[in-house]
């Protein structure tokens, strides 16, 4: 029993590795050897001493609880069916496990994809940010150039204004002088 249990415990790892069918064969083979061993043990026990006790058992026939004739020892039979149950359960569980793992993988894949797109988005945004700064710089440069141009124009107008003011004052002076002399 202990070996069996260890086998059961160790099996999920194998199943997870995807070798389900192989494992089952291996395991059934185990069971057969086990039964052969126990039969040999029975024969040894029921040797010449136990011959008198139950001739049917000696012949290898047994009755179960429902008094049906069995070739297997009831105990063994019971264990076998138990084993069968357990195996079934195990296969179910493995199936379930596979499903869960499949889902998990899918989910991780999806996550990876999402992460990838987010990453791209982030890179894009970062680049955009950088280029905006550059754009602003270019815009600023353009505006600076325009401002410089306007400043030059302003300077020209200032000079023109000064020249005109001077002409005005000259003419005022002339008028004053003219009036005074008259």
């Amino acid at each position: 029993m202990t070996t069996l249990q260890t086998e059961v415990l160790g099996s999920p790892a194998v199943a997870a590795r995807g070798g389900g069918a192989y494992l089952l064969d291996h395991w059934l083979c185990h069971i057969t050897t086990h039964r052969n061993r126990s039969l040999a043990a029975i024969t040894a026990k029921t040797g010449p001493v136990a011959m008198a006790k139950d001739p049917l058992a000696e012949a290898g026939f047994y009755f179960d609880e429902l008094n049906k004739l069995r070739v297997l020892e009831p105990e063994v039979s019971q264990k076998t069916s138990e084993l069968k149950e357990e195996c079934k359960e195990f296969v179910d569980k493995i199936g379930q496990f596979q499903k869960i793992v499949g889902g998990l993988i899918e989910m991780v894949d999806e996550l990876a994809k999402e992460a990838e797109t987010e990453k791209m988005k982030a890179i894009g945004a970062r680049n955009l940010l950088k280029s905006v700064a550059k754009q602003r710089e270019a815009q600023q440069q353009q505006l600076q150039a325009l401002i410089a141009e306007k400043k030059m124009q302003l300077e020209r107008y200032r000079i023109e204004y000064e020249a005109l003011s001077k002409v005005e004052s000259e003419q005022d002076e002339f008028i004053d002088q003219f009036i005074l002399q008259k």
């Binding site: 030059m152 300077e155 020209r156 107008y157 000079i159 023109e160 020249a163 005109l164 001077k166 002409v167 000259e170 003419q171």
Partner: peptide, 8 residues
């Protein structure tokens, strides 16, 4: 420099 000036 392009600016207009006047003189009398």
């Amino acid at each position: 420099d392009g600016s207009l000036v006047y003189s009398t």
